[in-house]
């Protein structure tokens, strides 16, 4: 059973690689650039996959274009600009830091800061509330009465 299962499992795991059919380079440095670049790009057809892993035809076309530009030694910025010109910032998994993306970049930290301030206030008030204040004579008498009643019942 295992003899059949293992190759089958391996085949199953290898299927996404076959589907993505990446471009190959002779130069390892170019290969590394190509691989890291594609991982940063979103495939617009299946939006939860990067260009590196998507089996969509558009992703294959775009991989071919990126590979062509890398073979031509175009700088990363130019390749990125090529894709942004056509598909917008949306192709980037890491959007550029600009006035209209400020909320996206800083929002989480602002919320974290607010949460920390809120927590600090809460903890300070709680620790202050724990300070023991001595009972005044009236309260003491009431306590005695309550305890006394409790004992008798």
């Amino acid at each position: 059973m295992k003899v059949i299962l293992l190759p089958l499992l391996m085949l199953l795991l290898a299927a996404p690689l076959l589907a993505a059919a990446p471009e190959e380079f002779d130069d390892p440095a170019k290969q590394a650039r190509y691989d890291s670049m594609l991982r940063e790009m979103r495939c617009l057809v299946c939006q939860n996959e990067s260009l590196a892993e998507s089996p969509a035809e558009l992703a294959r076309d775009l991989r071919r274009e990126v590979a062509r530009m890398i073979r031509e030694d175009k700088p990363d910025a130019e390749i990125r600009a090529f894709l942004i010109e056509r598909y917008g910032d949306y192709v980037l998994y890491r959007p550029p830091l600009r006035a209209d993306t400020l909320a996206l970049w800083l929002g989480p930290f602002v919320i974290l800061l607010l949460a920390l301030i809120g927590a600090a206030f809460y903890l300070r008030r709680r620790s202050r509330g724990h300070k023991e204040t001595p009972l005044d004579p009236a309260e003491r008498a009431r306590l005695k009465r309550l305890l006394g009643e409790d004992e008798t019942s």
Partner: peptide, 13 residues
């Protein structure tokens, strides 16, 4: 036929 112009037009669907 090869979708190259589609890329220039930002065609994705």
């Amino acid at each position: 036929s090869d979708g190259r112009t589609g890329i220039d037009w930002g065609v994705y669907g």
